[in-house]
Nucleic acid binder design. Structure first.
Length: 533
DNA sequence: GAAACTACTTAGAACCGATTAC
DNA sequence: GTAATCGGTTCTAAGTAGTTTC
C-alpha cells in the first residue's frame, strides 16, 4: 500500500489559547497577608493550576518532592520583592483561589453552559483539528490544540514531578504545512516549514524540554500505512523465526528478549540509556545484577521496574546454556552492575537488522503477542463443546484470549482493590439472582404452549445470554482485574486476527471493537476467515 | 563511537457520558 | 432519581530507534 506523495498540505495550525487573568479580587495570600505587587501571568497561572489539584484532592499534593519542585519553579517566576516575601511553601494560602475555582466550576456545569462549551470546541476542532492533503483529502488530526499549562505529574518515582509546565505560546510552535497559516493574534509562530517527508503537522518544545508533536489521527493514511508495515514485518519474522533463533545463540540478550520475557513488555523493552532526571526503570540491555536471581539450574527470577515504573516479578524456565551464560556473566559483578555491560540497545538492534527485513527488538513483541493470540483463538476452536455456541459464549473465549495476552505483556492498570472487590461481590450476587430467575422461568416453560411457550423461550435465551455476559465480566475481574486489555488491542494484536475470528465465528465486529478501533483498522477488513498470523 | 537530538510508538491515568442497580 | 459501575476516548508521559553532532 504505497503512500501517496503530499504536494500540498493545508492546515490552520493548532489552537493556542491565551491566558485569561484572575479577577483582581481573587488573590494568592502568604499566610494572611497579600503578596506584594502583582503576580506575573505565569506565576498566577501556576497557582491556579495548583489550586485545581487542591480542589480535586489530588494525591500528589501530599508528596514532599512534588511540593518542593513546584515551589522552586514558582519562586523562579516571582519578582525579587515577591521572592523576598515568599520563602516557605506551607505558608502559601490558596483559599481565595480554590473558592473562585469552585464557583467557576459550578457556573460552568449547567447543561446550557456545557452545550455552549461543546459548540465552541466543535467549531475550533473543525478549524484546527484537520488538514487537507493535495487540495482534496481531508484528514483528522490527533489533537486540535496545544497542551494546556499545568503541573508535571509523571509516573510514580519520576523525580521531576511537581515541576511547572508553562503555557505554550505561538512563538513555541513550528507548523509544517504549505500555503497560508496565519498565527493567532497574540503572537507569531516560531517557524513555518513544509517538509512532506515528516508525518507531524506541528511541534513545540515546552519549558521542561519535552518535544510535543501534533500528528494525523489514527485513521489517517500515514498511520494506517505504518500499522500495516508493522504487522507485515512481525509476520515476516514469524515465517523466519526458526532460522533466526538458530543464528542468535551467541547473543544471550536476545535469548532474554525472546525466551524469558516472551512479550512481557518490560523485559522486551530493549533498554535505552536514560538521563539522571528520569525514574530508575530498566529494559533488557540495562538490567542489573540486583534484578536477577538464579534459582535451580533451569530457573531464573527477575524482579525490576520497566516502562512507566511497572514492576515485573516473575520466574522463568530457561535452558542450561542460557543459565550458565548468565551465571558466568554476573559472577564477579556488584549488585548495581549491568548484566550485559558490553552491549547496548543499538548493539542488539544492529544485529537484528543484519538478519534482514527491518527487524528490531520491538518486532519480537508484536510477533509474540499476535502469534500467541492467533494460536489461542484457534486452540479454543478445537475445544468447542457439542452445544451450539451463542455470541456471548464466543465473546467469552475472545476476551479470555485477550486477557492471556495482557498478562503475557504485563499490561497493568491501577485498581482500587477495595472498590473492585465490592463490585465483584455485587456482580456475583447479581448472577445468582439471575440464575434463580432462570430456574423459575424454565419451570414455568413446562406448562406453556403455543405463543406463550415461544415468548417464554425467548425470555430464557435472553436471560441466558445476559448471564453469560455477566460471567465474562466476572471472569475478567476475578482473573485479571489489574490487567488492561486495551493496550495489546491498540498496539500488538494484528487486527486481521480479530477480523478473521469474527468472520469464522459469525460475530459482528462491533461486538469486539469500538467505533474508533473499527475506524483505525478498516484496512484489516479484507482478511478472510482463513487468515493465520 | 558516544551523546544528544528527533520522530514516532506505546502506555496507563484521567475523564466523561451511558448504562445498570437499587 | 441517584449512585455506582462500565466502557470508550482523550491526554500526555515514557519508551524505542534512527539520525546527527561532536
Amino acid at each position: 500500500m504505497p503512500l501517496q506523495q503530499v504536494r500540498r498540505l493545508e492546515y490552520a495550525g493548532p489552537y493556542v489559547p491565551k491566558y485569561k487573568p484572575l479577577p483582581s479580587t481573587v488573590k494568592l495570600l502568604y499566610g494572611t497577608a497579600p503578596v506584594v505587587g502583582k503576580l506575573s501571568d505565569d506565576a498566577e497561572e501556576a497557582v491556579v493550576n495548583y489550586g485545581r489539584l487542591l480542589e480535586a484532592k489530588n494525591k500528589h499534593i501530599r508528596k514532599r518532592t512534588f511540593n518542593q519542585n513546584f515551589f522552586n519553579d514558582f519562586r523562579a517566576l516571582l519578582t525579587p520583592r515577591q521572592r523576598d516575601q515568599i520563602r516557605e511553601f506551607r505558608k502559601l494560602n490558596f483559599g481565595q483561589i480554590t473558592v473562585h475555582l469552585r464557583r467557576l466550576k459550578e457556573a460552568s456545569s449547567t447543561p446550557a453552559e456545557k452545550k455552549k462549551r461543546k459548540e465552541t470546541n466543535d467549531q475550533l476542532k473543525q478549524r484546527h483539528g484537520v488538514c487537507k492533503k493535495n487540495g482534496k483529502v481531508v484528514e483528522e488530526l490527533g489533537v486540535w490544540m496545544v497542551e494546556p499549562s499545568g503541573i508535571f505529574i509523571g509516573r510514580p518515582d519520576n523525580p521531576r514531578h511537581g515541576r511547572i509546565k508553562l503555557r505554550i505560546r505561538p512563538s513555541d510552535v513550528v507548523v509544517n504545512c504549505s500555503g497560508a497559516c496565519p498565527p493567532p493574534p497574540w503572537g507569531n509562530w516560531k517557524a513555518q516549514i513544509f517538509d512532506p517527508s515528516q508525518a507531524w503537522v506541528a511541534k513545540y518544545t515546552n519549558n521542561l524540554k519535552a518535544i510535543k508533536y501534533i500528528f494525523p489521527g489514527i485513521d489517517s493514511s500515514v498511520r494506517k500505512h505504518s500499522d500495516v508495515a508493522k504487522f507485515e514485518v512481525a509476520q515476516s519474522l514469524g515465517r523466519r523465526i526458526a532460522g533466526v533463533r538458530k543464528t542468535y545463540e551467541k547473543l544471550i540478550a536476545m535469548r532474554l528478549i525472546d525466551n524469558l520475557g516472551s512479550p512481557s513488555t518490560s523485559l522486551t523493552e530493549i533498554g535505552n540509556e536514560k538521563g539522571p532526571d528520569a525514574a530508575d526503570t530498566v529494559g533488557c540491555t540495562t538490567l542489573r545484577k540486583e534484578h536477577i536471581s538464579l534459582k535451580s539450574r533451569h530457573k531464573v527470577c527477575l524482579d525490576f521496574k520497566g516502562k512507566d515504573s511497572i514492576r515485573l516479578k516473575k520466574e522463568f524456565e530457561i535452558s542450561l546454556p542460557v543459565f550458565n551464560a548468565i551465571s558466568r556473566n554476573i559472577r564477579r559483578k556488584r549488585e548495581r552492575d549491568q548484566v550485559f555491560d558490553l552491549i547496548q540497545a543499538q548493539t542488539v538492534n544492529k544485529y537484528l537488522k543484519d538478519l534482514g527485513d527491518n527487524y528490531s527488538a520491538k518486532v519480537f513483541r508484536t510477533f509474540n503477542a499476535s502469534k500467541t493470540f492467533d494460536d489461542k483463538l484457534h486452540m479454543q476452536k478445537m475445544r468447542t463443546p457439542k452445544k451450539k455456541l451463542t455470541i456471548a459464549d464466543k465473546l467469552f473465549i475472545y476476551k479470555k484470549a485477550n486477557l492471556a495476552i495482557a498478562k503475557l505483556c504485563n499490561h497493568q492498570k491501577t485498581v482500587n482493590t477495595k472498590l473492585a472487590m465490592r463490585a465483584l461481590g455485587g456482580q456475583k450476587l447479581n448472577r445468582q439472582k439471575k440464575q434463580d430467575k432462570l430456574r423459575i422461568l424454565k419451570e414455568k416453560l413446562k406448562g406453556k404452549v403455543g405463543i406463550q411457550k415461544l415468548l417464554c423461550q425467548r425470555q430464557i435465551s435472553k436471560l441466558e445470554e445476559n448471564i453469560k455476559e455477566l460471567e465474562t465480566r466476572i471472569y475478567l475481574k476475578d482473573e485479571g482485574m489489574e490487567y488492561a486489555l486495551g493496550t495489546s488491542q491498540a498496539n500488538y494484536l494484528d487486527p486481521r486476527i480479530t477480523v478473521a475470528w469474527c468472520k469464522r465465528n459469525k460475530v459482528p465486529l462491533e461486538k469486539v471493537w469500538s467505533a474508533n478501533q473499527r475506524k483505525k483498522y478498516v484496512w484489516a477488513n479484507k482478511a478472510t476467515s482463513q487468515f493465520r498470523f
